[in-house]
Design a protein around this nucleic acid. Sequence first.
DNA 1: TATTGTTATACTCTATAACTATA
DNA 2: TATAGTTATAGAGTATAACAATA
Lengths: 137, 137
Amino acid sequence: MHDPLAVLPGYTLRRAANAMMADLSARLAPLELRVTDASVLILIDAQSGSTASGIGRILDIQRANMVPLLNRLESAGLVRRVPIDRKSFSLELTPEGASRLAKARAIMARFETDLLDRIPREHRSHLVPALNALWQP
Amino acid sequence: MHDPLAVLPGYTLRRAANAMMADLSARLAPLELRVTDASVLILIDAQSGSTASGIGRILDIQRANMVPLLNRLESAGLVRRVPIDRKSFSLELTPEGASRLAKARAIMARFETDLLDRIPREHRSHLVPALNALWQP
DNA sequence: TATTGTTATACTCTATAACTATA
DNA sequence: TATAGTTATAGAGTATAACAATA
């Protein structure tokens, strides 16, 4: 049967995101990183000293859900929580975290080029600006 | 802090899909329909007589997960399971299901135009073809 | 032999409420 | 008074394995 939903932007957006995230998940699995783990590592690396709340605000992850996520990353030896004051912690990559992130970056770079390669050339440059318009404030 | 991930197609795809699905979910909530419910109703309407397995194949929903979904729709009086043979069932909309679907279609039509309106005009027509290239076989 | 419907189950992701302590 | 971190919990969504019955 032909899929009558495939003309709807909302539907195609969801299908495309599901397919691509499943792909990226599978590629990151050998590193024992989830997609969200990788984005958190990237953000900590980009601004060492961020707090859990700050990272969560950028990635739209609830404060409460950052706790088990960071616990996992810390248990895996990838991230350290360093006290800023008596209320909050600064997040830093460990050397192991930095090396894991380097591998993740290589995988993600390949993933991104594979993604773009799937898109017909004439549409390619329009994707990111169109998508950003959908979620950015 | 500036978000260094916003240039990545994969990341923007996920953020856009999450934002749009949260929006559509909220719009459908007054009808007591989830996003997936609405797409199942559309497919049943488009090809009355489909089986649960068939609908699941099109929408990429596991057979096992179709069961509670259809149970809910049937309990809500929106869908009927009519025996085809002694092994499978044909899915049909009830009158109530058809009327609920009509309301859902109006909401979704508005949602889709609002979505497209957010995208700068020069990128707009490229979105659906680009997204379809990412998930269709 | 392949497929349909089903049950049971588990895991991930996400959202909310509440609490403590500190800025 | 607002914020950071935390705990506990519940709801979705999704994936797998297994089974009976039928095509």
